[in-house]
């Protein structure tokens, strides 16, 4: 850098001019760049002011129409109605509540208050209202639902309690298979029992007949037992 700094000034003559001609001041248009290396002497040349082209005079779309209407022989005040309105005939004098022209000193009749409605003429007078019925049904249903859900809950609780003790519900297929087998067994035994001799004279015969009767009774008991659906099986061998 130089030891002595150059002193720069824009002459106030130019500044004065710029103040006066701020409108299209060329120096205002081209700002001095921040980097002194980017400056150009040609930026100092004032641009010649070219006046913007004069805009076309405004002309309404409707000018021709308006002009035509203005000079045409159409009725005067055709669009706004006639200048004079004919008076009503004397026979059509103004009657009560026919619309009083509002004037100062005149009073419009006041509107009377509406009577309170008669509730006796109501359709459902004295009956339980429909909404209330609906409401009761809803409550009942809700109660039922609640009971059902409670029972279900209880059952589940019981089941879970039984499961805890080692007792399981016998599945239905299993039960039916057992039942079928029992019935087959019973029929076979019953066939044998029917074919027994009518004479039961010997001890073995008596023993055999009693044994078969006992067995049949046992089958019948079992069939009866397995005919119920809710069968619990305990796996708790310890007891």
């Amino acid at each position: 850098m130089a030891a002595v700094k150059p002193k720069v000034q824009f002459s106030s003559q130019a500044a004065l001019k710029t103040q006066l001609e701020k409108k299209h001041d060329p120096r205002a248009a081209i700002p001095i760049p921040a980097d002194p290396y980017l400056e150009s002497v040609y930026s100092l040349i004032p641009e010649e002011y070219i006046a913007p082209p004069k805009e076309k005079r405004y002309k309404s779309h409707y000018s021709t129409q308006a002009r035509k209407e203005y000079v045409s022989d159409t009725k005067k005040a055709a669009s706004m109605g006639p200048a004079k309105v004919p008076l009503p005939a004397p026979s059509h004098f103004l009657k009560k509540r026919q619309g009083v022209p509002k004037k100062e000193g005149w009073f419009m009749p006041k509107k009377t208050k509406k009577e309170s409605p008669s509730f006796l003429s109501k359709k459902d007078y004295g009956r339980t209202p429909e909404y209330l019925k609906k409401r009761v049904l809803e409550i009942k249903e809700a109660e039922l639902n609640l009971a059902n859900s409670l029972a279900l809950k209880q059952q589940e609780q019981q089941q879970s309690a039984l499961e805890e003790q080692g007792i399981l519900v016998l599945p239905d297929e299993e039960r039916e298979r057992i039942l079928k087998g029992l019935k087959e067994n019973w029929e076979q035994l019953n066939n044998d029992y029917q074919r027994l001799s009518l004479t039961v004279d010997t001890v073995p015969k008596i023993a055999r007949k009693v044994n078969m009767e006992q067995q049949l009774k046992q089958y019948e008991d079992l069939i009866d037992r397995f005919s119920h659906t809710n069968i619990h099986v305990s796996f708790n061998t310890g007891q």
């Binding site: 002595v4 002193k7 720069v8 824009f10 002459s11 003559q13 130019a14 001019k17």
Partner: peptide
């Protein structure tokens, strides 16, 4: 004839 810029370095 307007002066646009003046640069002066004192004493030089």
């Amino acid at each position: 004839k307007e002066e646009l810029l003046r640069i002066s370095v004192p004493n030089l």
